[in-house]
Nucleic acid binder design. Structure first.
Length: 172
DNA sequence: TCAATGATTGTTTTG
DNA sequence: CAAAACAATCATTGA
């Protein structure tokens, strides 16, 4: 990539010693933009969506907590100004929560992660298939059986009920 | 009018 | 291993 001046081989670590997690990674968005005037579809990606099956990253416990927190925050602060306000407040409260309190959120987040994995598996397979088709399209035309090997949802959900957070494990 | 931003932390992803 | 990016949200703002 940047092998132009092959002279200075040294000089590798220097600013790297400085932690990037000072407070806010420093407008990571700006960094991204600075990299290349890219424009990522946030909500309406009309056609930019190349992979409609591509699952998005599972929200972490913090986000799950935020979902609830936002409602609460707005409840007491109907004049909420912007997401930053809730974000800050949420962050502080989040740190104030005990491990047991974050437990239910983590549990939910874990569940989301599981679902994400499942979706990823399906997406992975599809992506693979798509790649196959793109990579090597003509080749096995003998098989007209299209891709029917797609696993049809397993019905083995013994009890995937909503694990309500009833148990309160006081760890503290 | 539409889309991006801002702010939080955590997880996923990539290098 | 480590650093980067992105996950939701939504009022406000910029082009």
């Amino acid at each position: 990539m940047k092998g132009s001046k092959g002279k200075r081989t040294s000089k590798v670590s220097k600013e790297a010693l400085k932690p990037v997690d000072d407070r806010k990674v420093g407008k990571r968005k700006a960094a991204v933009k600075a990299d290349k005037g890219i424009k990522r579809p946030t909500k309406k990606d009309l056609k930019a969506k190349k992979d409609p099956n591509k699952p998005k990253r599972p929200s972490s416990a913090f986000f799950v907590f935020l979902e609830d927190f936002r409602k609460e925050y707005k409840r007491e602060n109907p004049n909420v100004k912007s997401v930053s306000a809730v974000g800050k407040a949420g962050g502080q409260k989040w740190k104030s929560l005990s491990q047991s309190e974050r437990a239910p959120y983590e549990a939910k987040a874990a569940k989301r992660k599981a679902e994400y994995e499942k979706l990823m598996k399906a997406y992975d397979k599809k992506a693979s298939a798509a790649e196959d088709e793109e990579s090597e399209r003509s080749k096995s035309e003998v098989n007209d059986e299209d891709e029917a090997s797609e696993e049809e949802h397993e019905e083995d959900d013994d009890n995937t009920e909503e694990d309500d957070d009833d148990n309160e494990e006081d760890d503290d």
